[in-house]
Design a protein around this nucleic acid. Structure first.
Lengths: 117, 117
DNA sequence: TCATTACATCACCACTTGTTGATATGATGA
DNA sequence: TCATCATATCAACAAGTGGTGATGTAATGA
């Protein structure tokens, strides 16, 4: 790829957005909007399996979106920066206008879908 | 999954962010920040192959992030909403602070990487 | 009509990624 | 020390996803 602009910056940004691009991770971030939670609380809040939640938390932590802190045998996670919440809100606002388009985005959801007229 | 909050909303948001989560698509959006471009111009600007660019453009269009307009035998694409650019800027600002963390996010990039001390 | 240009689609491959179940690690308390 | 709880890691699998080359389609102009 011969990407025009700053390739490193673009790669970083893609990686950042990838942290937001999975429903399980978004549900974790959503749960953390209210405040810090332990892994068990996150598992209960999201319905994810414990290893799965732990895996996604590791990803979010590695990407700098959340921060972990060990307290006894508990590990609590919280958002690393208020702008993580702001970015989620910005997405909500954008969605308010393009929701119809995104809702119709069947590119990766349906197979054999008939062509649009 | 027993996702706590509005599952549909979370799914939509994940789909929206997925549009931003690939370097090729980000480079296309980055090129479109300056204004509308034809597919050929996008191919030249990004270095992507023509079918690949067309595929990503189709994804971006289906997701409502860009809009296409046919003009003769050319098809020009432009950002669907100024907030797409704003969201990209918000990500840049967030990256300014968490860049170090994202830079170290080797979870999906390296295999057999030794553990951090 | 025919060649050419611009773009989209298809078939296929390789790699990435999310999920699960099993298991390891590590802290706490009896 | 031993049992238990909280969390992380591992192996393995299935599905999603990006990439390429070949081909189709539609518009333009000679």
């Amino acid at each position: 790829m011969l990407i025009r602009a700053n390739a490193q910056s673009i790669g970083l940004k893609a990686k950042l957005f990838r942290g937001f691009s999975d429903p399980s991770r978004l549900s974790i971030l959503d749960a953390l909007l209210a405040g810090p939670l332990t892994v068990t609380e996150i598992v209960e809040a999201t319905g994810l399996s414990q290893p799965n939640a732990s895996n996604h938390l590791g990803c979010l932590r590695d990407c700098g979106l959340v921060v972990s802190a060990q307290q006894g045998r508990y590990v609590t996670y919280h958002l690393s920066d208020p702008r993580v919440a702001l970015l989620l809100n910005s997405a909500d606002e954008l969605l308010a206008d393009v929701a119809r388009g995104v809702y119709q985005c069947t590119r990766y959801d349906l197979v054999g879908e008939p062509e649009r007229p």
